[in-house]
Amino acid sequence: KAVLCADHGEKLQLFCQEDGKVICWLCERSQEHRGHHTFLVE
């Protein structure tokens, strides 16, 4: 069962290295995470 983003309802499948947390693809494109290094997690 996928864990969903509290903000967007999308699957949490990216790890943001700068923030040390898992985010969704919409979070990654938001101003908050712009320019951060993210990695796909399974």
Score class of each variant (00 low, 15 high):
residue 28 E to A: 06
residue 12 L to I: 06
residue 39 F to Y: 14
residue 30 S to L: 06
residue 3 V to Y: 08
residue 17 Q to F: 02
residue 6 A to C: 08
residue 6 A to N: 05
residue 26 L to W: 07
residue 11 K to N: 12
residue 5 C to H: 01
residue 4 L to E: 08
residue 12 L to W: 09
residue 34 R to E: 10
residue 1 K to A: 05
residue 28 E to G: 07
residue 27 C to P: 02
residue 12 L to Q: 11
residue 1 K to T: 06
residue 39 F to A: 15
residue 16 C to H: 04
residue 23 I to P: 02
residue 29 R to M: 08
residue 2 A to Y: 08
residue 26 L to N: 10
residue 13 Q to L: 08
residue 17 Q to S: 04
residue 41 V to E: 12
residue 19 D to G: 01
residue 35 G to R: 07
residue 11 K to W: 15
residue 16 C to T: 01
residue 24 C to M: 00
residue 2 A to L: 11
residue 28 E to T: 13
residue 26 L to T: 11
residue 33 H to C: 06
residue 17 Q to G: 04
residue 28 E to W: 04
residue 4 L to K: 08
residue 34 R to G: 07
residue 12 L to G: 14
residue 2 A to Q: 15
residue 5 C to R: 00
residue 4 L to M: 15
residue 17 Q to H: 06
residue 4 L to S: 06
residue 14 L to T: 09
residue 37 H to A: 13
residue 36 H to Y: 00
residue 8 H to N: 00
residue 28 E to P: 04
residue 24 C to Q: 01
residue 30 S to Q: 12
residue 10 E to V: 03
residue 40 L to N: 14
residue 20 G to E: 13
residue 1 K to W: 01
residue 33 H to N: 07
residue 15 F to C: 12
residue 31 Q to V: 12
residue 42 E to C: 03
residue 15 F to V: 10
residue 6 A to Y: 07
residue 18 E to Y: 02
residue 1 K to D: 15
residue 25 W to Q: 14
residue 10 E to R: 11
residue 21 K to C: 03
residue 9 G to A: 10
residue 2 A to T: 14
residue 7 D to Q: 15
residue 2 A to D: 11
residue 15 F to M: 11
residue 14 L to D: 09
residue 7 D to A: 13
residue 14 L to I: 12
residue 12 L to M: 15
residue 35 G to L: 06
residue 23 I to R: 04
residue 36 H to D: 03
residue 2 A to R: 13
residue 5 C to L: 00
residue 41 V to S: 10
residue 39 F to P: 02
residue 14 L to S: 12
residue 9 G to S: 10
residue 20 G to L: 14
residue 27 C to Q: 00
residue 36 H to M: 02
residue 3 V to A: 12
residue 10 E to Y: 11
residue 39 F to W: 08
residue 21 K to G: 06
residue 1 K to M: 08
residue 15 F to K: 12
residue 29 R to P: 03
residue 7 D to S: 12
residue 12 L to P: 14
residue 5 C to M: 01
residue 18 E to M: 14
residue 39 F to E: 14
residue 5 C to V: 00
residue 27 C to S: 00
residue 2 A to C: 07
residue 2 A to E: 15
residue 37 H to V: 06
residue 39 F to V: 14
residue 21 K to R: 13
residue 1 K to C: 01
residue 34 R to D: 11
residue 2 A to V: 13
residue 9 G to V: 02
residue 28 E to Q: 08
residue 36 H to F: 00
residue 30 S to N: 08
residue 14 L to E: 07
residue 9 G to P: 03
residue 23 I to A: 03
residue 16 C to S: 05
residue 13 Q to P: 06
residue 31 Q to S: 11
residue 22 V to T: 06
residue 7 D to F: 04
residue 28 E to L: 05
residue 4 L to V: 12
residue 36 H to V: 02
residue 5 C to G: 01
residue 6 A to F: 08
residue 39 F to R: 15
residue 24 C to S: 01
residue 3 V to I: 08
residue 6 A to S: 13
residue 17 Q to R: 10
residue 15 F to R: 09
residue 11 K to Q: 05
residue 36 H to C: 03
residue 10 E to Q: 09
residue 23 I to N: 09
residue 3 V to R: 05
residue 41 V to A: 14
residue 9 G to H: 05
residue 29 R to K: 10
residue 7 D to L: 14
residue 31 Q to H: 08
residue 26 L to S: 10
residue 17 Q to K: 15
residue 8 H to G: 01
residue 31 Q to L: 04
residue 24 C to V: 00
residue 4 L to Q: 05
residue 11 K to R: 10
residue 30 S to Y: 04
residue 2 A to S: 12
residue 13 Q to G: 10
residue 24 C to D: 00
residue 19 D to S: 04
residue 3 V to T: 12
residue 40 L to W: 09
residue 31 Q to D: 06
residue 9 G to D: 09
